[in-house]
Write a protein that binds this DNA or RNA. Structure first.
Lengths: 221, 221
DNA sequence: AAAAATCAATTAAACGTTTGTTTAATTCAA
DNA sequence: TTGAATTAAACAAACGTTTAATTGATTTTT
């Protein structure tokens, strides 16, 4: 914390923590200032207002995913299945390593301020766009079924989000000790999410699993 | 609104609306009292405090699902696939028709109060229990694959939640008009979610889709 | 049956905190 | 000496909650 922008970023990361812990309204500017070790007035000084602080936070965190997925999309050396697997790896790691930010994104997409609402929806739409490319590619190559792509994206993001909302719930249902080390928790959750999603998507997307001729077991459904 | 408990329930339903719209901290007791058309002090009088109001709300809304799923589980006339389909229908309808409540449940499972946290996690765990029974049954009957059940439950709930968090995002991605009638919106979203989830779960659960002999198309993954 | 007593329901007003923001003074480096 | 960075203090507004007074219906007493 030697630079001016370092201080700004430090405030942002503290705000991220507190917004995720207590929500936007639950975390006070005084909370943030105190935990960041800066004077109360510095937040208005740097960001203008509490709401603009949240806007800055979204902007600060949002930019960093686009490039990676773009490269993945263009990579000719990977099969379509590899791309799906990497996509899963990427999003699971990304969301699990930024749980707090995604908790904010999640709850603030239904926020009161139109500005913030649009910003967080915009981020979601960019994600959708990237994943759509990968799946649509696989469909064109007749490897993937004609699945509902936006819904499939919702399944990927929703599954991950569901398990990153509450550590307590995750630990109970996944039979992890409730007082597990945070690093171990993250790693085990990531492993399990990745395995599940890859298996799920393989079954869901594989054109081989398209509703073929009826057999005794799935007849009539 | 002739009875005392009618008034209590009226306050609860207004609180549900406002908590879902603005979050727990964002919705003030004065907001709730005004929209409910009662005196400010009546909320402390009926519920004790704002926090206990939320507890009452969770209790009020939580109880009503258990019986239905219990019956579904015991119904011998339905095939295992039928049960999964009905399960999807049930949860999609339930969550879509109680979007506001589920928005609260979602964001308050990471709440500050331990009491509220435990209560909303308890509700989630009861859901998990019921769905587990159905899937585990199908596994025993060798109809379903040995999928990760808690993760599969997360996929079901997460997918639905993802699309009920933001009407704006849903309307954009699902190509519905952004100023669509609320009733139509709900119905179309429900239809699409049900179709997607049933197709997804069929592929995911069907033992026929278990990783069989390798073929040219999925070799090496 | 009329009057009195009782108690829950309801109200307006006020309570003390905490909120986000601003001010005006001060520090500190250029 | 200039101007940005930082501070403590104060601001009005909004917050959840409590109080004390009043209403209104039900029950008890006469």
């Amino acid at each position: 914390m030697s630079d001016k922008s370092d201080k700004r970023e430090h405030i942002l990361s503290v705000a991220e923590e507190l917004f995720a812990e207590k929500g936007f309204d639950g975390a006070s500017v005084r909370d943030i200032a105190q935990r960041a070790g800066v004077n109360l007035a510095m937040i208005s000084y740097y960001f203008g207002s509490k709401e603009k602080l949240l806007e800055s936070l979204l902007e600060w965190r949002a930019g960093y995913a686009y490039g990676i997925l773009d490269e993945l999309n263009k990579d000719e050396s990977l099969s379509q299945w590899d791309k799906v697997d990497r996509l899963v790896d990427f999003y699971v790691d990304r969301i699990i390593n930024n749980m707090k930010f995604h908790a904010i994104m999640w709850q603030e997409s239904s926020a009161r301020s139109e500005e913030i609402k649009n910003r967080s929806i915009g981020i979601k739409l960019r994600n959708l766009e990237q994943i759509t490319k990968i799946i649509a590619d696989g469909q064109q190559k007749k490897l993937f079924r004609q699945v509902d792509i936006p819904m499939t994206v919702g399944t990927i993001m929703g599954t991950i989000s569901y398990y990153t909302q509450s550590k307590t719930y995750s630990c109970v249902t996944l039979s992890l000790g409730e007082d597990i080390n945070d690093e171990q928790y993250r790693q085990r959750l990531a492993t399990r999410l990745k395995a599940h999603l890859k298996r799920l998507l393989r079954a869901h997307l594989d054109i081989k699993n398209d509703s073929g001729p009826m057999t005794e077991d799935n007849k009539g459904h």
